[in-house]
């Protein structure tokens, strides 16, 4: 078979809804895009453990503490599932970690923002996990078998992440004026970064057409972003929390909540490494890796002699 024939056969398989498994023929670009996407996704989960992990020691009740540890542990587990899916494509975890620590690999920019108060933990669960669920539901239909299966597992575990966040915010808005103000302040800081999570406008997104054709991405950035806004605005309204967008208004004709323009300058700055916590996050990951070297070596040495 020529490469053209192979490609046609491959695209026909995807068209039929078949899953591509490790070892199947795939265009080099498919493999490259998947490795990029999946490893980025994995790095996001791992880096995402940091802003919330730091608040475990200060969680203000036993229930909150238990739930937060469980959530952060899940994030580690999700990173683990995703690294596995990427490894099936021929990249090693050593390579992926090296790419993250050197700054070559990207991860979701949302985790470059600081968690400034306890309320941030609630709003992160509400907004960031709420957004992640929409993304994950789409990716669970991915044409690449290991990625789809990882996403199905992640999706099943993720919904409590969103709900525990909303539960925290509910306690705050039904509490004292200080607590309510804390919640509103967190909302004001996390709303726009969450909308940025969905990436650039479709028109500015160079990777999208290939990803759509090959069944990796089946919904566009703007579509998902709109769905997130539609699902979240009514929740905020019920909780009497305002969203920091004076242009937010309901469009009767489309049933969509129309919203203002994202500050793309900020988006590209943070993506480019100049966000509030980019350096801190990578430093923490590098430090954990370096401090852990003697442990990894010792465990390997023991196994080598056994």
């Amino acid at each position: 078979m020529t490469d053209d024939e192979r490609l046609a056969h491959f695209e026909a398989r995807i068209g039929r809804g078949e899953k591509i498994e490790p070892g199947d023929w795939m265009p080099p670009e498919y493999r490259r895009q998947l490795i990029r996407m999946i490893s980025q996704h994995a790095h996001s989960e791992i880096v995402g453990m940091l802003p919330e992990g730091g608040w475990i020691t200060m969680a203000p009740s036993l229930r909150r503490k238990l739930v937060l540890v469980a959530k952060v542990q899940d994030e580690g587990g999700h990173g683990q599932y995703l690294y596995h899916a990427a490894e099936t494509l021929g990249i090693s975890r050593e390579e992926m970690i090296e790419a993250l620590h050197s700054g070559k690999a990207k991860y979701s920019s949302i985790f470059n923002y600081p968690a400034r108060s306890w309320a941030d933990i609630g709003v992160i669960g509400w907004f960031v996990d709420g957004a992640a669920i929409l993304n994950q539901t789409m990716l669970a239909r991915s044409s690449y078998g290991p990625y789809a299966r990882a996403m199905v597992r992640i999706s099943a575990e993720e919904s409590f992440h969103n709900k525990q966040g909303i539960e925290i915010v509910l306690a705050l808005i039904e509490g004292t004026p200080t607590q309510r103000a804390m919640a509103q302040d967190a909302v004001n800081r996390w709303w726009w970064p969450t909308l940025m999570m969905f990436g650039p406008h479709d028109s500015e997104s160079p990777n999208t057409p290939a990803l759509v054709r090959w069944g990796i991405k089946t919904r566009s950035n703007d579509e998902l972003r709109q769905e997130f806004v539609n699902q979240t605005v009514p929740q905020a309204e019920a909780m009497r929390l305002s969203l920091p967008d004076p242009d937010l208004r309901f469009d009767e004709s489309t049933g969509n909540w129309r919203f203002g323009e994202i500050d793309w300058g900020e988006f590209w700055r943070v993506v480019g490494g100049d966000g509030p916590c980019n350096r801190e996050r990578l430093q923490a990951r590098r430090a954990a890796h370096e401090d852990g070297l003697w442990v990894r070596e010792a465990m390997a040495a023991y196994a080598a002699r056994a």
Partner: peptide
């Protein structure tokens, strides 16, 4: 124990140690 989350020597140990912390908290409760 929970001070280690996100800082353990390798991902699997991060997940494993978080489990221990979670269990200890449950026992405290």
């Amino acid at each position: 124990d929970s001070e280690w989350t996100g800082h353990a020597p390798i991902l699997e140990e991060d997940i494993a140690f978080a489990n221990i912390a979670l269990d200890e908290m449950g026992h405290a409760g």
